[in-house]
Nucleic acid binder design. Structure first.
Length: 756
DNA sequence: GAGTTTGAAACT
DNA sequence: CAGTTTCAAACTC
């Protein structure tokens, strides 16, 4: 699996327009995203795995949401409609191999495939989703200009679907494209701080076990169109996500209530739970359908709270290699399976729906990002069970492999519940998630088969992401550290899907470092955690700081480490054990005070006996907080009036100041050097010749000195004051330098002309 | 870098 | 819940 790059968010338009009409786009379209054709052996219609009969649609509706994206997949083709797309600048690539959608894939990749690169552009809002035609013809979905201004919100409550302007285009120029079914109701409401964008792509349930792929992406954008990746706050989820799968039930509904803008993604037939993370974090959820599942998926209800400005990405993948189709909940000329729907903010409608079919391969590669905690994401295994779903339509049916770019979810996840329906529940203030500019991204990737362990989401480490375990109808969870996704940003070489035939999108490298919301990745990423040195705990006990902080071990010095995705099963068990022992084991020990840091205190208090609580053995002291009444320490010197503590603090402050000064000095020096190099660089590059100072030969130097001496004599003869004399000399020196530089330039020009 | 100290976590 | 053991980080030399 490929990880979505941070720019994926940027790709999402602020506004998405629904389109019902399909327009053919010339093959020469330059703005089209590259689509890779995926040969589909499966002539049968790819359908959702979880629901045999009814297609599932996921819809997210938020009072504050401003953008809506909808994707529909009909038997004959795949249709994606989006609304509010504003910023689509990154290439969007679909990889046939894994049925994955790759976002931000480098253009070179597309070029390699021999297909024209697909680019989603914000301006034209042309491309949203591409599918690969069965015939090998890529399909390009194109969105016409909405005319709406980005960031412009419509009056809340406006559920009036916009006119579908979404275009589906095949590379070969044929209009075989699938009718855009189901008009996405586009509801735009005024965003207080951010705008929500959700894109949902629903796919019809495959008749055969062939891989139905569903892909849901929701995205939240602030008023500036920036996407924020933020850790999940450990808040209670008030909303519920309902993903129950029933052959009888045509639709699945996930309801999310959020007072603020939010985005939610749900995957039909799969369960996705997003657990609360650190407040500013965002979560990306990717669910993968199990290849072997042939039965209806278990219904799961997930209460979900979406934080303001947070973004959620849910990706559902079917394991089968069959072509993926996207179908909207609305009727189309073609058979469409029921789709799961997710309603947010109590607003009904298909708004903010994004379903993206993904490759079914559950390959997972460990990606770790320092500093963050687990994201709790509950992934629902898509069942590939043979469903009553309509057989694949005409030859136009196109298998689709999609890997999406990074998705952000800022939704605390409540323990999943088996609920068929979730009533829209307005988010309470308590459920609010604070949105920050943090750019961390979360990715949920397929996990190895997991035992039926359903950790208490409320107690999971912040930032944990649960990935579905492949299996028939089984819902597995893979707890993925929030850093997982972030690491992708930092480590472009890491791919989520090892099996993916696609090379890791190189675009992630550069894109990952692109400033998001004015902050660079480095700025927004917490500092790397110290590597652990565990030898006996397998990094699966709280002794291990990595594990205790909900992180995978990365670049650690540990031995026999099980704190990675390769040992997800063991890891899950360990987490469960810890939670059984202490439900708050993964919660931060240092609780934030109500008012500032002064109120911060250790949740349990320390038990120091010999350190006087003035060494880092003491967790209170280590956290730079004073011991409190709940501490059981002996001989504590870590209190306000403690002279020892003050002395240590002063020393520490002084040391810190020195370090900062040194750092600042180094930074300044480095900057100066860089600036100098930058100034000289043009000379080098332009002329390719010698630098000006290389012309300062001995003769030139002597001549310069003579000029300066002459100037000094002149000042002396004219009885100029010393200051004036110095000024004259310096001025002359400046002239000399200018002449040297000028001569150097001329010499280079002459040389260049001669060479020519 | 090796050894010691320390206190949280785990265990009984 | 208390006592003991285990463990890895912090610390010292």
């Amino acid at each position: 699996m490929d990880v979505v790059s941070p720019e994926l968010n940027s790709l999402l338009p602020d506004e998405i327009m629904d389109t019902e009409a399909i327009e053919d786009v010339p093959h020469s379209q330059t703005d089209v995203a590259t689509v890779k054709e995926e040969p589909s052996d499966d002539t049968s219609v790819p359908m959702e795995t979880d629901t045999p009969v009814a297609a599932e649609s996921l819809s997210l509706s938020m009072a504050t949401s401003t953008a809506t994206t909808k994707t529909t997949d009909s038997v004959t083709g795949t249709t994606v409609s989006t609304s509010g797309l504003q910023k689509l600048t990154a290439p969007f690539t679909i990889s046939p191999a894994n049925h994955q959608i790759i976002l931000n894939k480098v253009a070179t990749e597309a070029a390699k495939s021999g297909t024209p690169p697909q680019v989603i552009k914000q301006e034209g809002q042309k491309l949203l989703v591409t599918t690969i035609g069965k015939s090998g013809q890529p399909i390009v979905l194109q969105l016409p200009h909405t005319g709406g201004k980005p960031g412009v919100s419509q009056a809340s409550g406006d559920v009036k679907p916009q006119t579908p302007q979404f275009k589906v285009v095949t590379i070969d120029g044929r209009s075989e494209l699938k009718p855009v079914v189901g008009s996405a109701s586009n509801q735009v409401t005024t965003l207080q701080a951010q705008q929500l964008k959700a894109v949902q792509i629903a796919k019809k349930t495959p008749v055969s076990s062939a891989a139905p792929i569903k892909f849901i992406i929701t995205k939240t954008v602030n008023s500036k169109g920036f996407l924020f990746l933020q850790p999940f706050p450990c808040h209670v989820l008030s909303g519920r996500v309902l993903t129950q799968n029933s052959p009888v039930m045509p639709q699945r509904t996930i309801t999310l209530s959020e007072p603020h803008s939010m985005s939610i993604q749900s995957i039909p037939g799969k369960k996705i739970a997003i657990s609360p993370l650190k407040s500013p974090s965002k979560v990306t959820v990717v669910s993968v359908a199990s290849p072997t599942s042939n039965t209806s998926q278990k219904s799961v209800a997930l209460p979900v709270n979406v934080a303001l400005g947070q973004q959620i990405l849910a990706v559902q993948q079917s394991t089968s290699a069959s072509p993926v189709k996207v179908a909207t909940s609305q009727t189309t000329t073609q058979n469409i399976k029921p789709v799961q729907s997710v309603a947010v903010g109590g607003v009904s409608g298909s708004q903010f729906k994004t379903i993206i079919p993904l490759a079914t391969q559950p390959n997972v590669q460990q990606i770790q990002v320092p500093g963050s905690r687990f994201h709790y994401v509950r992934l629902v295994t898509a069942t590939t069970a043979s469903s009553t779903g309509q057989p694949s339509g005409p030859s136009t049916t196109k298998p689709m492999v999609v890997s999406t770019g990074a998705v952000r979810m800022s939704v605390p996840i409540v323990p999943a519940q088996t609920i068929k329906q979730v009533a829209p529940k307005p988010l309470t203030s308590a459920a609010q998630v604070v949105t920050t500019t943090q750019t961390q991204q979360r990715l949920i990737m397929p996990a190895t088969p997991l035992p039926q362990i359903q950790p208490n989401f409320t107690n999971l480490p912040p930032g944990t992401v649960l990935a579905p375990a492949p299996g028939a109808g089984n819902v597995g969870y893979a707890v993925v550290p929030a850093q997982y996704v972030t690491q992708l940003q930092q480590s472009p070489f890491v791919t989520l899907a090892s099996s993916s035939s696609f090379p890791a999108p190189t675009g992630i490298q550069t894109q990952a470092r692109l400033p998001l919301n004015g902050l660079t990745t480095a700025e927004t990423t917490s500092r790397p955690r110290k590597p652990c040195n565990c030898t006996k705990s397998q990094c699966l006990k709280l002794y291990c700081d990595c594990f205790a902080n909900g992180e995978f071990c990365n670049n650690c010095n540990c031995n026999n480490c099980f704190n990675n995705l390769e040992h997800e099963t063991e890891r899950q068990k360990a987490i469960k054990t810890c939670l059984d022992r202490n439900p708050e084991a993964f919660k931060p020990k240092i609780g934030k005070g109500k008012e500032g840091e002064s109120d911060r205190r250790h949740s349990k208090g320390c038990n120091c006996k010999r350190s006087g609580c003035l060494k880092n053995y003491c967790e209170c002291y280590e956290a730079k907080i004073m011991c409190s009444s709940i501490c059981k320490c002996i001989g504590c010197k870590n209190f306000e009036e403690s002279p020892e503590r003050k002395t240590l603090m002063h020393l520490a402050d002084a040391a810190e100041v020195r370090v900062q000064q040194q750092t600042a000095a180094k930074t300044k020096l480095s900057s100066q050097i860089s600036d100098l190099l930058m100034r000289t660089a043009p000379v080098i590059s332009s002329g390719g010749g010698r630098l000006p100072y290389t012309f300062v030969t001995k003769e030139v130097l002597e001549a310069t000195c003579e000029c300066l001496l002459e100037q000094a004599k002149k000042a002396e003869h004219t009885h100029q004051p010393q200051a004036e004399a110095e000024r004259m000399i310096l001025e002359e020196f400046g002239h000399c330098l200018m002449r040297i530089i000028s001569s150097a330039g001329k010499a280079k020009a002459d040389c260049a002309s001669i060479n020519c």
